[in-house]
Amino acid sequence: MNLIDIAALSQSSGVPPSTLRYYEELGLIHSCARHGLRRQYDEQTLTQLALISLGKAAGFSLEQIKGMFRQDGSPNLSRPILHERADAIENQVRRLKALRDTLRHVADCSAPSHMQCPKFQQLLRVIHPQAAGAPPWRPKRRRQGE
């Protein structure tokens, strides 16, 4: 088994040594040995770091990512959870595309101001109903004795 020094692992993975130590503290990765004060990792740790990076990019917390590994560090990915997260990302992409298209329309709109653009008004109603002419929020009146 070839061991990788923490500095070499950091360079190969692009993950700073401080983050590697933090991941080890959380139990996401494990060092196998030490060479003096320097931690040594097995080659599987590079795969684990790639999966951690992918999980973070997909919006999983480090605690959720930790649950995606077995005790021996091998991946144990739940397909239903991955499908659920992929669906959430797909919905987010749809919302962002709609927002992008609306913003492009507003930027190119020939209305004298954004506030006179019907599409912009529609966007405001969707985001915040009170911002587009709905009755403003009013604080409740205090009753006597309150």
Rank of each mutant, 00 (worst) to 15 (best):
H105K: 04
G27E: 06
G145T: 12
D87I: 01
Q40N: 11
A131R: 05
L9Y: 10
T45E: 01
L96W: 04
C32M: 11
T47R: 10
Q130N: 04
I127Q: 08
P112W: 01
I4S: 09
S110G: 11
E146W: 12
A132L: 11
R39K: 13
P136D: 07
A57E: 15
I4G: 03
I4F: 08
S13G: 06
F120K: 03
G59D: 13
E84Y: 03
C117S: 08
A8N: 09
S113A: 15
R79V: 14
L28S: 04
P17S: 08
P17D: 00
R85P: 04
P136Q: 06
Y22Q: 05
R21F: 01
R34G: 04
A50G: 12
H83C: 10
R95I: 06
R94P: 02
S18R: 13
I89T: 06
Q48L: 07
V106Q: 00
L51Y: 01
P75T: 04
D108K: 06
G27T: 07
Q64M: 11
P16G: 09
V93N: 01
G59V: 13
G73K: 06
H128V: 03
T47G: 15
Y23V: 10
S18L: 02
Q11I: 05
A88P: 01
H30T: 14
G14M: 11
V15N: 07
I81H: 06
L62C: 05
Q11H: 13
L20A: 09
T102V: 10
D5G: 05
D5M: 05
L26G: 10
H35S: 15
R125W: 10
R138F: 00
G59A: 10
R104K: 11
L96A: 15
Q130P: 01
H35E: 13
Y41P: 01
L20D: 03
D72I: 08
L9I: 09
A58L: 14
S53F: 03
R21V: 08
L82W: 00
R79D: 06
R142P: 04
S53E: 12
N2L: 05
I89Q: 08
I89K: 03
I6F: 03
R125Q: 13
R79F: 02
L62T: 02
I81T: 13
E90M: 00
L28C: 10
A98D: 13
G73V: 03
L99R: 07
E90N: 03
R100K: 14
E25F: 02
K66D: 07
Q40K: 10
A98Y: 05
Y23I: 06
N76C: 13
Y22G: 10
L99H: 09
K66W: 05
A7N: 15
S18K: 12
H105I: 05
S31M: 04
V126Q: 14
Q122W: 05
L37N: 05
R125G: 07
Q48T: 14
V106I: 12
L99I: 11
P135C: 03
G55V: 05
A134P: 04
L82H: 03
K56I: 13
M1I: 09
L99N: 06
G133Y: 09
K97A: 09
P129L: 07
S110M: 02
A132M: 04
